[in-house]
């Protein structure tokens, strides 16, 4: 068992203790606000935040905002699946292309692409398309890099088995290379989707449009502090569920 998996190995006492620590943290904040050690005008009481959850779900319809965010993530993920993965496969098959463009693809991963959002606002207008395109671009590099990595690192023995069966180039790719590269491709897709999700929420907040990022901005502008905190906790919760789901999906598929 690796050191990391040992840390994530759940023992019976871990979850209750995690919940206990979280509860204690909120209790300390509640008491600190009660004793006026913390300013209630900048830090809302956890009890008020708790009751604001009902309000943001019923009155603010945060679930419909969540649906909008997920539609945008879905749009970006379709781009990643149907453009970035085939592009990665092409680069892996044509070595010279990867040699020439590999550094550029890696450099793209280091560039703050999300900063291009004003540019896309001009090109696509204040529409979900702007958000989807930026999210796709931020997820593009990890998907391409991991796809290339997966295909080029297929074990030689597997390729030799394919050759010994006189498989055609297409059969070799379909029956050997692609299945062997799938774990790396899914890892890339998971990373790409995480970047895409972060970017979608960020751009929604920045341009006041669409789903979860937008509602956080709206509530903050209304200075509805408990609802703002509740919406933030909701976004964090949704993100965590999304990442946990992707992890499970990746494990299940590979």
């Amino acid at each position: 068992m690796t050191a990391k998996s040992a840390i994530f190995q759940k023992e019976k006492w871990v979850i209750p203790l995690q919940l206990g620590v979280t509860f204690l943290f909120f209790a300390i904040i509640e008491i600190a606000i009660e004793l006026k050690w913390l300013n209630e005008y900048v830090l809302s009481r956890p009890s008020k935040i708790f009751f604001a959850f009902h309000r943001i779900i019923v009155e603010e319809s945060i679930l419909s905002y969540t649906a909008v965010t997920f539609m945008e993530v879905l749009g970006a993920s379709l781009g990643l699946i149907f453009i970035a993965i085939p592009f990665g496969i092409l680069l892996a098959q044509k070595k010279v292309l990867w040699q020439a463009w590999g550094d550029w693809v890696s450099a793209l991963a280091a560039a703050p692409i999300v900063l291009l959002y004003p540019l896309f606002l001009v090109v696509f207008g204040r529409s979900p398309m702007t958000i989807i395109v930026i999210a796709f671009l931020t997820g593009f590099s990890p998907v391409v890099i991991k796809t290339v990595e997966g295909i080029t690192n297929v074990r030689q023995v597997l390729k030799d088995v394919g050759r010994s069966f006189n498989l055609s180039a297409y059969q070799q790719f379909k029956l050997i290379t692609l299945p062997a590269a799938l774990p790396a491709i899914f890892l890339g897709l998971r990373l790409g989707l995480i970047y895409a999700m972060i970017t979608v929420v960020a751009v929604e907040y920045l341009i006041d449009l669409g789903g979860l990022g937008n509602i956080v901005g709206e509530l903050a502008e209304r200075y509805d502090l408990p609802a703002t905190y509740a919406a933030m906790c909701f976004v964090v919760g949704v993100s965590i569920l999304f990442f946990a789901f992707l992890e499970r999906l990746e494990k299940w598929l590979t």
């Binding site: 995480i194 972060i198 960020a202 990022g213 703002t228 933030m232 976004v235 990442f243």
Partner: peptide, 16 residues
Amino acid sequence: LLHYLAPTPKIIFFPL
């Protein structure tokens, strides 16, 4: 907790 909090969109904390 940190592992799952790490990839959340931090920009939403900006209003606070």
